[in-house]
Design a protein around this nucleic acid. Structure first.
Length: 305
RNA sequence: GGUCGAGUAGCUCAGUCGGCAGAGCAUACGCCUGAAAAGCGUAGGGUCACCGGAUCGACGCCGGUCUCGACCA
């Protein structure tokens, strides 16, 4: 890493972090934006994920976008690999990266050194079958026996995490917990992070407005096009705003009901993002109430100096 | 105007024979290592519409009042 730390703007969905980043990049040539977002990685999922527009991408170099087709599975490790290369390239050409982050785990995996265990699909399939038949308890007991540290970091009822940990233990022959210190360690890293923090009611209003703008802007047609193509993968199919419109298009609910559900789930998602980010003591928080660009840009510029 | 039904947590609703007021969702808070816009957990929250009565004891029984709905006129 160079002497200049990389910049990070983070915050919940609809907080205005992309606008802040664009304005910063306009004022500081040589800035390149790196999107840290688990859903903007898919091609053709632009409206519902609020992917930066073609105009923005023509004006400022963007990275982290369009890394996979919507019918393919995508995961953290691949993201870290791609973004790691992008960051190295940016450094090499003497530019400065500005990360715009909405996905907490993806950001941690980029900023903090994490050794990602591999995948053992056949092991996982067997464990999942076992969990479906017997429930999570026997698997949790086994995890307690083989890796008590990992077991202590998860709930006995969280089937998905237990299965993953056992998959790694059986597949790698190493303890799952040996792959890193866990997420509750926050060592110094060469990234300076600014977080946007809105009063919850105001952010809820912005989310509602934005969802309606997405629908007016062609979200339904975008989903129809995706369904007409090869379809959505397990991971892409989880995107908020897409699964609900699919429900509507397949006749399970009205458009109004789908929109209401999107708004509700997006608000809940934003809270989950806040809860993830606010644990990190390295983040400098900026309270925003009106204009994210006007209120956050000065802090970002101060911190970037 | 009459008859019947309903009124219980923010919302939708359970509540057995009269014996400590319940669920789901929502909300708040927390967890998280190759699905993370995913997954999991904890908590707070009540004038049981209102007034009166009988009872050791009422969300429940009796009388009345109010509101909403359906039907009849």
């Amino acid at each position: 890493m160079s002497a200049r730390p990389a910049l990070v703007v983070l915050g919940p969905t609809a907080s205005g972090k992309s606008d802040v980043a664009m304005e910063f990049a306009r004022r500081h040539r040589g800035t390149e934006i790196v999107a840290i977002d688990a859903m903007q990685v898919y091609t053709g999922m632009d409206i519902g994920t609020a992917t930066p527009t073609a105009a923005d991408r023509a004006e400022v170099p963007h990275h982290g976008l369009d890394l996979a087709t919507p019918d393919s599975d995508f995961a953290v490790a691949e993201f870290v690999r791609v973004v790691g290369e992008a960051l190295a390239d940016i450094e090499r050409r003497g530019a400065r990266p500005l990360l715009v982050a909405g996905t907490g785990l993806y950001l941690r995996a980029v900023t903090d050194p994490m050794e990602m265990p591999g995948q053992w699909p056949e092991v996982r399939a067997a464990l999942e079958a076992e969990a479906a038949e017997l429930g999570p308890e026997p698997l949790f007991e086994r995890l307690v026996a083989v890796d008590p540290v990992a077991a202590s970091r998860m709930e006995p009822s969280n089937t998905r995490r237990i299965v993953r940990a056992l998959e790694v233990v059986q597949g790698s022959g190493r303890a799952f917990s040996s792959f890193g210190p866990g997420l509750d360690h926050y060592p110094p890293v060469p990234f300076v992070q600014v977080g946007l923090r809105w009063p919850r009611e105001l952010l809820a209003l912005r989310i509602e407005e934005r969802v309606h703008r997405m629908v007016a802007g062609g979200l339904v047609a975008e989903v129809e096009a995706l369904l007409a193509g090869p379809g959505l993968s397990r991971t892409a199919g989880q995107a908020l705003g897409y699964k609900e419109i699919v429900d509507h298009l397949e006749g399970r609910c009205s458009l109004d009901e789908a929109v209401d559900t999107i708004v509700l789930r997006t608000r809940q998602f934003a809270v989950r993002q806040e809860r993830w980010f606010r644990r990190d003591p390295r983040v400098r928080w900026v309270d925003v109430e009106h204009d994210p660009v006007a209120e956050v840009l000065p802090v970002l510029e101060e911190i970037s100096a």
